[in-house]
Computed example of a mutant assay.
Amino acid sequence: MAAEDPVTLWRPDWTARRAPPVTDQAAARSLREAVDETLAGIVRGSGALAVEISGGLDSSIVAAAVAARGKDQVRLWLNAWGPDATADERPWIDSLAAHLGIAATSVPRAVGRLTEDMLGQLSTGVRPGLAALDVLHDADWARRFAEAGIDGVVTGKGGDSMFVQPADIGVFADLYRDRGRRALLSRALPDLARWNERSVWTLAHQALRRHWTPQAVDSPNPLIGPRRHADIPRHPWLEDIEDLGPAKRRQILGLVQGCGLHGPSLQTRVVSVLHPLLAQPVVEACLALPAGQLTLGRRDRALARQAFGDRLPEAITARRSKGEMTAFYGHLIADGLDVLRPWLLDGRLASMGLVDVDPAGAALTREALAWRGGYVDIMTTAAIEGWVRAWERRLPGV
């Protein structure tokens, strides 16, 4: 049978372009109804549940929706706390648990040293295991779910993109694109300037510069050879969206990246890992709303905070910060450099010219990690390396 061009059945920009304007009250109602519809379906069809609660807004919204519909069906309300203060969300978990009337289980984040066997376990499926770059945590939760007889685990992942975080210059650029000069007189300009800790003149000037673009969210992985980036096709959903504002384009990019959360992991071998904030009803409800409305022109995820405020403790809806795992992952990767350096610098990707060895070698040092980070790029490349090795073993000579 001759190959045929694929037929596009759905694109996120279709929803973004065709949606009529609605009031803030109607917008908040649409978010609430979409989340409730999604969680009602999950509760009905998923058996024994676990709910991942991080202490942040998104997972709290999901937990509250589950608690309203299937509290008795949940066997674990699970949180993992890190070893330093910035990664310890237990005070927020305690507040949420008391408000919802649930018994939360907080456990220490799994620690240990990376090994080649662990890296090899990251990507044994059809696609690279980008959903579980923290293989120690993935293995620990897979074990806990299996022991508790869990059928499905519900997360709050994807909320940052769909509900729109951050509320930055790009949000005002979208607003100006929609309203023209009237945006300069809107309440959003001083509110967003205050939120971003800059003057209204600086924010407006930067947003309206002809050649200004927001910092790229899909910037190239510095470990991959620069010549190879030019050969990589963009995801079809990212094509032909230049007419949309930068914040809306970033939201669509977040959806594309969120597709990677559905990839294989040690957890998916024992439970169904469910991300309701990336389900179709929620995605379409969020895409249909301008970024300025999702932020109410004043702060990140403001509309979601308003829509679900009556279900959550004020400490969470008003919270400005969020848990930070950077130091934790920095130590994990730094302590595993003796494994990661040969894994990447002498691996199959390097032999094929896909990993640019000199920049990669410079990035894989304690000094570079301390100054520049790059943990996601490193672990993503390590996962793809493991994926190539796994399939070369399965398909020798191909």
Score class of each variant (00 low, 15 high):
61 I>S: 10
93 I>E: 09
48 A>G: 00
103 A>S: 13
82 G>M: 12
65 A>L: 04
72 D>G: 14
50 A>C: 02
78 L>N: 08
65 A>N: 07
67 A>H: 05
94 D>P: 10
49 L>K: 03
65 A>W: 07
83 P>W: 15
57 L>I: 12
73 Q>Y: 01
74 V>K: 13
47 G>Q: 10
77 W>L: 06
92 W>S: 10
87 A>F: 02
52 E>K: 04
101 G>N: 12
91 P>G: 01
65 A>Y: 01
102 I>W: 05
99 H>I: 01
93 I>F: 10
63 A>H: 03
59 S>W: 05
87 A>G: 13
51 V>W: 02
90 R>Q: 08
77 W>Y: 05
64 A>Y: 05
103 A>Y: 01
88 D>Y: 13
75 R>F: 09
49 L>F: 02
50 A>W: 03
95 S>K: 12
61 I>D: 14
77 W>K: 08
85 A>I: 11
70 G>I: 00
68 A>M: 08
103 A>I: 06
93 I>D: 07
61 I>E: 14
47 G>K: 14
65 A>H: 07
73 Q>H: 07
102 I>K: 14
97 A>C: 04
71 K>Q: 14
86 T>G: 06
100 L>N: 13
80 A>V: 05
55 G>W: 14
58 D>E: 11
62 V>R: 04
69 R>V: 00
97 A>I: 02
71 K>D: 08
59 S>F: 05
66 V>I: 09
94 D>R: 15
99 H>F: 02
76 L>G: 00
53 I>C: 04
75 R>T: 11
97 A>H: 12
99 H>E: 14
49 L>A: 01
77 W>C: 00
55 G>Y: 12
66 V>C: 03
71 K>M: 09
75 R>D: 12
54 S>I: 03
76 L>R: 15
59 S>M: 08
57 L>V: 11
101 G>Y: 11
88 D>I: 03
56 G>D: 08
50 A>D: 07
85 A>C: 06
51 V>S: 02
56 G>Q: 07
89 E>H: 04
86 T>S: 13
54 S>M: 15
96 L>K: 12
91 P>F: 02
55 G>H: 11
103 A>R: 15
64 A>N: 09
70 G>S: 11
86 T>W: 08
52 E>F: 04
93 I>Q: 10
66 V>F: 01
62 V>M: 01
90 R>K: 07
103 A>E: 15
52 E>W: 06
79 N>W: 06
84 D>S: 14
101 G>M: 11
81 W>M: 03
96 L>G: 09
50 A>E: 03
64 A>E: 06
60 S>Y: 07
82 G>N: 12
102 I>R: 15
60 S>A: 14
102 I>G: 06
68 A>G: 10
58 D>L: 03
99 H>W: 04
76 L>S: 02
83 P>Y: 15
63 A>G: 02
63 A>P: 03
54 S>G: 10
76 L>M: 13
87 A>I: 01
90 R>E: 05
86 T>R: 15
62 V>T: 09
92 W>P: 00
101 G>I: 03
55 G>K: 09
65 A>R: 03
89 E>F: 02
